[in-house]
Design a protein around this nucleic acid. Sequence first.
DNA 1: GAAATTTATCGAAACGTTTCGATTTGTTTT
DNA 2: AAAACAAATCGAAACGTTTCGATAAATTTC
Lengths: 340, 340
Amino acid sequence: MVTIKDVAKHAGVALSTASYALSGSDKVSPKTRELVLQAAKELNYQKNGFAMDLKRKSTKTILLILSDLSGPYYSELIRGTQEVTLSNGFDLIACSSVGGADSTAYKFLQERRVDGAIVLDPNISEHLLRESAREGCPIVVMDRYVEGDFIMNVAADNVQGGYEATRYLMEKGHRDIAWIGGPSNSLGSQHRKEGYLKALQEEGIANTKWMLVGNFTEEGGYHSTKVLLMQEERPTAIFYGNDEMAIGGYKALREFGLSVPGDVSIVGFDDIQVAEYLSPPLTTVRQPKYEMGTMAAHLVFQAMGGEYVNKSYKLKIELIERLSCQPPRLAPNRGKGMET
Amino acid sequence: MVTIKDVAKHAGVALSTASYALSGSDKVSPKTRELVLQAAKELNYQKNGFAMDLKRKSTKTILLILSDLSGPYYSELIRGTQEVTLSNGFDLIACSSVGGADSTAYKFLQERRVDGAIVLDPNISEHLLRESAREGCPIVVMDRYVEGDFIMNVAADNVQGGYEATRYLMEKGHRDIAWIGGPSNSLGSQHRKEGYLKALQEEGIANTKWMLVGNFTEEGGYHSTKVLLMQEERPTAIFYGNDEMAIGGYKALREFGLSVPGDVSIVGFDDIQVAEYLSPPLTTVRQPKYEMGTMAAHLVFQAMGGEYVNKSYKLKIELIERLSCQPPRLAPNRGKGMET
DNA sequence: GAAATTTATCGAAACGTTTCGATTTGTTTT
DNA sequence: AAAACAAATCGAAACGTTTCGATAAATTTC
C-alpha cells in the first residue's frame, strides 16, 4: 500500500513536508507542494483515515443508530440530522443494532470510533450508553428516557399527542373511544395512552373495557380490533397507538361490515407515508420528525463544544386531519356501561 | 483517556500482556487475565478501534452508500446486505453522498476506512470508484454499470421487466401503450424503456407519440400524464418508469374524469410499499431487492477472498398483478395513427 | 557583504494498538 | 539436583499519520 512515506520519497522531500503539502498548509512553498501533489497523483496515494484520526484524536463523524437500517420510519428525522451534521463539517454514518452485543452499533460505540451518537433504538442498553457517553462523545437518545453524563434526550410530546387526538374525537361528539396501544415496553406508546386517559378523565369518562394492546404491526392491529369488535358493546371511535395498527384496524372493520368513518371513527399515530393514500385517508398525529432530527444533531454539537444544555427536550405534536373521523351516527352506548 | 497502557500499569503487568489478556489469547495465564480484565473494568477502559485497525490493516467493516440515507426505497435490499455482512462477521455502516466531494461517502472511500463497499447511488463518480476499489476493498455497484478492477455490478434485469410489463398489457389486448419514463441519466429507466420498445416491435407496433419523461417523482408523473392526456389521441394503457410516477398518473387521470382501469390501464415499476394500498391497487413490477442485496454482499466477500467472480450480474424480475389493468373497453385508436 | 530575520524543510516523537522474538519463570525429566 | 523443556511474561518495533522544535536556505536589513 502506498503511504505518505512513499509519496515523500518519490517527490524527493521529507515525510513531514509531504504531510504539510497534502494537508494544504502554507508552510510549504508552492513549487514543492506541486511536486508532492504530483507524486501523490502518480502513485495514486490515498490517505489512511485511521492513522489520521489516531493522531488527531478526533474522528469528525457522528453515528446514527437505528434499530433497523431498512425501516422507512425515520426518513425525515434522518434528513434533519444529516443536514445539521454536514453543515457542521462532520460526517454522519448509520448503523443498526442487529446482532446484539456484537452488532455494529456496539462496536462503534465501544471502540470510540465516533465523536458523538444519536440513538433511535430501544435495543441499545442503558449500560452501554452510559459507558460510552463521555466528553468526546455525547449521545442523544430519542424516544426514550435515559439519564447519565453526556446523555441527552429528545422526544415528541406523546402525552400531548394522545391528549389532542382524544380531544379531537370528543369534540366531534365521541365518548366511547377505544385505545389500541403498542407494546408495553414502548415509552412512546405509554405516553400516548397517558394523554388519552387524561382527556377522558377530564370529561369524567372512565373507560375500562376498551383498552387493548397490539404490537405496533398491521397484523397486531387487525387482531386486536377483531377482539374489540367481538365484544357486546362497541365504541364509536378507535384511537390506535400507531398507523400500522390502524391499517390492520381498517381491514378488521371492513370484515365486520363496518364503515369508516360512518360506523366508527379512526385516528392513528405517526402519519406514515401510506396514511394519506388509505381509503378513507387516515386522520392521524404527526411527530415533528425533521425538527427532532435537527434538534438532536444540534444538541450533540453543543455538548461537544462544552456548552451547557438541558438534558431533556420534548417537541410539540400536530394533528393531521383527514377523512377517517366524523361525529358518531347515533350514540347507543352513551352513558351505559361507561362508569366503573 | 484511559489506554491499554494504563490498564497494564494498574494491573502491574506489561503492556503486551495486557493486550493478550484483553483479546482473549491463551498465551496468558488465567489469573493474570482476570487481573487485567478487572483493571480494565475498574478504569472503564474502552479500546481505541482505529489504533487496532491501523495495526491489523483491516477494518472488518463494509460501507453501504446510498444517494439518500432517508429514502424508503432500499428497505429489503439493505436487509439482504446486512444479513450477509453480519453472518460473515463484518460490520455494515451506511452513509450518503449528500455533500458531493466532501460527503461522507467520499471521505470513507478515499481514506480507506472500509474493507469493501456497496454502492446504490448514481452520484458517486466512476473516477472515485475506480480510484478506491482495490485488493483490500472491492466494490459492488448496483443499478448501473461501471467497469474496473475490483469493481462488480449487480442489477435487476430491467429490460426483461419492461418487456414483461408491456407484454402483459398487450396480452390483455392493449396496443396503444404509452411510456412515461424516468430521467435519461437513469440506466434502469433506459433499460425498462428498451424492454418496452422490444415488446412493441415484436408485434409490429411503432409508438412515436406516447413517450414522455418524468423525473421519477409523483409530481413528474402527474405533469407528464396531463401532457399525455391533452393530446388528441389517447392511449388505452400507460406504463410508468416507476411507481411514484404512476401515483401522480392516478391523480391526473382522476382530474380528467378517467377511471383506472376502466378507461385506461396502468402498470408501474418497483412495487413500493404504498402500491398495494392505492385504489385500485397498482399492478407493477418487483425487483428482487432482497436477493440483490445478498448477492452484492456475497460478491464483496468473494472478491475479498481473492475468488474469481464474474464482473456483472443481472437478476430476474417479477410482475405483481393487482387491479389496475383490464382489457381496453373499446379500441377507438387501434390501427389509426399507429404506423409511422 | 556580514548580520539579522524570515521562510522552507527536516527529523523525531507521539497517537494506541498488535505481535514477534527474547527472556524469565515454572514444570517435568533424568 | 541439574538439565531440558514448556508456559508465561516482557520489551520493542511497527502501523501511517500529524506536529513540534530544530536546522537549513533564502531573503532582507544595515
